[in-house]
Amino acid sequence: MSAIAINSLTKNYGDIPRVDSISFEVPRGSVCGFVGPNGSGKTTTMRMLLGLIRPSSGEASILGHSIQEPGSYLHKVGAMIEGPAFYPHLSAEKNLRLLQKVGVIARDSQAIARSLTHVGLAGREKDRYKGFSLGMKQRLGIAAALMFEPELLILDEPTNGLDPVGAVEVRELITTLAARGLTIFISSHLLEELEIMCDYFVMIQSGKIQFAGSAKQLMNSQELTLIIRPEYAIDQKTLLSLAREQGFKAEILGDSVHIANARGQGAHFNRLAAAAGINLEHLQTHAPTLTEIFFSTKSGPR
């Protein structure tokens, strides 16, 4: 059973679809990166999953429960959507205690201290929220999401406002949580961080899903570029011609020839170059990073 299963979910604002009939599943126990540019519908999707806004049409289930009944699953879900939101005049500890009082989960007296320690706020529990830096506020938001030991964690831009050290700490925290079997659905603009953390990706653009699948599937769906650099720059044009004669799209970038969509062609081009009397100084198959995929896919991953 999937942790999240979405089927033709749509949210319209007026006549404009913010989320347009999206469908995907997030397997249990996975860390799923939800990637897309600003305004692509990530937060709207997450808010629908949490029952904060109602879909215009379509269905979705969280941990096997329909999103029409948020009360049936929200006690198993920790979430931070659109940044942390707490009462400014209360301390970190009191803000979390208030959520404990409001919540329907049996109170664990150690939960507050444990979750604050998790996010590196131990020792700052008595400080008022309004005095916190943006990074500390983010950490408190994550602490609140973790406090009830959820089965599913939904995090919208959890590293916003964190310095590089903080971002790495959050990544390590997420990796630790994932190792415990927690399913994590996370959106972030720090694509390098997502690439390290996630084993599953959902890409969305203009409210439509461009890709949903495992990290391996995502990488396999991408063109691999063969980068070859001859010993002498004068041979670049010959290599370019060779590649084009073979029907490949190629171009010279810097001191190398880049041959697109050349998966498994390294040995072939090595032989061709040798036959043409060209020594290769460098030959590398380059898989695009998540950042490159993100920027190269105006029309979605290929």
Partner: peptide, 14 residues
């Protein structure tokens, strides 16, 4: 105004 309603609702979902 503090956007705490979403926290409230996530913990008291009704």
């Amino acid at each position: 105004s503090l956007k705490t309603l979403r926290n409230l609702f996530l913990h008291a979902p009704s």
